[in-house]
Nucleic acid binder design. Structure first.
Lengths: 136, 136
DNA sequence: GGTATAGCTTACGTCAACGTAAGGGCTGTG
DNA sequence: CACAGCCCTTACGTTGACGTAAGCTATACC
C-alpha cells in the first residue's frame, strides 16, 4: 500500500477542492477559523482544516456570521477544554440549534407559500398566452 | 361598526409593529421594496406595505439579498405586467424556490448532525462533572 | 410666540467578508 | 543566471445594509 500519509493540501489544492479563493482561506486563518500548518512559509491544510472548512461553508449558507461559526466550531473540537468554557459552548450550540429548527420550520412554510404563488403565476401566464393567441 | 378604513400606519407604528428602525423603512422605500403613500411629506404604510415587509424580513432570514427579494416581491404583485417580464419573474422565483428547497434539505441534515454533537457534548460534560466530584 | 415632538432629507460613517493591487521570497528549469 | 510559477505579506478598496449626525419642517400644546 502506498504510504497513505495523513495527506495535507497546499492552498491551491484546497481552493480547487472547495471552490474558494486563496484570499478566503488566508482570511479564515487570520480569523482563527482554520489552522494550517507551515512548511517554510507555505500553508498546508490538514484533514482537520478540511472538516472545519466544510462546516464553515455550510454555516455560511445558513446565514451564520463567521464569528458565530467560530464558536460553533469550538464544539466540534473540544478535547481538553475547561468545564465552564465547555458549558458555555454547549449553550451557544443549543441556541444555535433552536435557531436552525425555527429557520427550518419557517422555510418549510415559505416554500409552501411560494409554491402556491407559482401555481398562480402559471395560470396568469397561461391565460395571457391565450389572450395573445386570441388577438392574433 | 367603527369605519374600519383600510388602516395605514405611520412610520413609528410600522417600526413598532415589525421591530425595525425608521431608517430601515426609508431605506427599503429608496430601494423600491416598499411604496408608502404620502400625507404631506409623511409616509403612510398601507396593508400592501405590511405584507411586503413581512416577506422582506422573512427573505432576509433566509439569507437572500434585498435585490433578490425585490425580484421575488414582483411575483406577489404582478397584475398588469408584460408577458416577458412576467415570465422572467416566474423563472427567478422558480430558481429561488429550488434554492430554498436545497437549503431546507441541507438544514435538516445539519440539524441532525448538530444534535449528535450535542449528545456527545452532554456526555463530555457529564463525565467532566464526575471527575470533578471525585477530585473534591 | 416659544418649544417640544415627530417626521423629513442629505450625507458621511460603519461593519463584515472578502477583492485586489503591490512588492518580496523560494524553487525549478532552460 | 534569468525568468516563470507559486506562495507569501501588507494594506487599501469594495459592496450591501443599514447607523448616525446635522439641520429643516410641520403640528400641538402651553
Amino acid at each position: 500500500m502506498t504510504d497513505m500519509t495523513d495527506m495535507t493540501l497546499n492552498i491551491r489544492e484546497m481552493c480547487d477542492a472547495y471552490q474558494v479563493t486563496p484570499r478566503t482561506l488566508r482570511f479564515y486563518e487570520a480569523k482563527e477559523l482554520l489552522f494550517p500548518i507551515r512548511e517554510g512559509q507555505k500553508r498546508l491544510f490538514t484533514k482537520r482544516d478540511r472538516a472545519r472548512l466544510k462546516l464553515i461553508l455550510r454555516g455560511k449558507r445558513f446565514g451564520f456570521s463567521l464569528e458565530e461559526i467560530r464558536q460553533l466550531l469550538d464544539l466540534y473540537h473540544m478535547g481538553d477544554q475547561q468545564h465552564t468554557q465547555l458549558l458555555r459552548t454547549y449553550e451557544i450550540a443549543s441556541e444555535r440549534l433552536a435557531d436552525m429548527e425555527r429557520q427550518r420550520d419557517e422555510l418549510i412554510e415559505a416554500i409552501d407559500e411560494l409554491k402556491e404563488q407559482l401555481k398562480w403565476g402559471e395560470k396568469v401566464i397561461a391565460s395571457a398566452k391565450n389572450g395573445q393567441e386570441a388577438a392574433e
